[in-house]
Structure formats: C-alpha cells, structure tokens
Write a protein that binds this DNA or RNA. Structure first.
Length: 176
DNA sequence: GACAGATGAAGGA
DNA sequence: TCCTTCATCTGTC
C-alpha cells in the first residue's frame, strides 16, 4: 500500500520547484520545469500518479512545506539551510541512503569527491556506485549532491543539469 | 545475469 | 602532463 503523495509548488527567484510529500516527510523535490531541467532527466509528469491536489493538506505537511521552502530559498540565496523537514527515503536501498546521509554531512561551501564519499561510507571502491546513488537522489539541493565533484576537481555530472550544479556551487562561494 | 554508469587510478606516449 | 585503459561496485532491466 502506497501513501498518496501531496504535491506542492515552491516559488523561488529561480522558478517554481515542485515538492512531493508522503506521510513520512519530503519524498521528492523537482527542479523548475522551465527549461526542462528535471530531476532524473525524466518527464516531470506521471512520476507520481497518486499525487493529490493540494487541498485539505494535513498540518504536518504544511509545516514541512514551510520548512522546505525556507531551506530551499536559503540555499538558493547562498546560505546554509537552518532546518530541514523529515525526509522520506522509504523504498530506497541502504546503500543509497548511506550515500545521501554522507552528502548531508558536507558542510555549506565545502565539496567532496565521489571517492571521499565512498570512503566515508566504508566502501572505498564503490566510487562509481556513489555516482549512481547521487544521480538517484530524489531531493537535490537539500541533499547536496551538487557538492560532490570528481577527484580531479571537475564537475562530474548532475541530475538537474550541470548549469544548476555550477550555479548552486557558485552561490556557496565554491569556485571551480 | 548482463549491462550501464555523475569514478579513480595506473600506465604509456 | 595528457590520454587511454581497466578495475571496481551497485542499481536496473
């Protein structure tokens, strides 16, 4: 039994992000569809056929929406997010969750390589798998996969597009 | 079970 | 140095 997702827009100076919430927390965050920059390079529609209209929104989700919007706007403004809503990673693999936990430990304005993330989770040889887990990250920006660079200091890749990655890093004061 | 992938490291030119 | 090749590990189909 799947929990219906509540889909809510978050307007920012960079466009309208789409947040999806389950009963456990924030499950997905999609980049603005303007310019077709979408998470996972998949169509933004039909990814959650059970998504419901934002009517009768439960109180917790209202709180999570405010926290998500505040965190998102803080990051886009080049500041560290003070608080984050609970994140719903149910259905994901343990490996992916461990990678994403490691990503959340990267401080604002800092970067790490895929190899460093692999070592941090105790799988020093799983560097390519770390890249895969980063690409599968459903909550970019708040789970800072944009702070992961290749070992040679180059950009690597980004599910939302390298322009987004470059822009997010620049706002945090990271020069490539 | 095979294949692909957001890497890293080593070896050769 | 720079480029190429290969080893490695995980997720997906």
């Amino acid at each position: 039994m799947k929990t219906p997702l509540v889909e809510l827009p978050i307007s920012t100076c960079d466009g309208q992000f789409i947040a999806r919430y389950s009963g456990k927390g924030l499950a997905e965050l999609n980049f603005p569809s303007v310019g077709r920059v979408l998470v996972g390079s998949k169509s933004n529609e039909d990814r959650s056929p059970r998504a419901v209209k934002p009517t009768g929104i439960p109180a917790p989700i209202c709180r999570w929406q405010r926290a998500t919007a505040a965190a998102l706007k803080a990051v886009l403004a080049g500041r560290a997010a003070k608080t984050l809503p609970p994140l719903d990673w149910s259905g994901k693999t343990e490996f992916q969750k461990s990678v994403w936990r490691a990503l959340r430990k990267i401080r604002h304005g800092q970067t790490k390589s895929y190899g460093e993330i692999a070592r941090a989770i105790g799988r020093p040889k799983a560097v390519r798998a770390v890249g895969g887990a980063c690409g599968a990250n459903p909550i970019p920006v708040l789970v800072p996969c944009h702070r992961v660079l290749a070992a040679n200091g180059q950009m690597g890749g980004f599910s939302g597009g390298l322009d987004w990655k470059r822009s997010l890093l620049a706002r945090e004061g990271v020069s490539l």
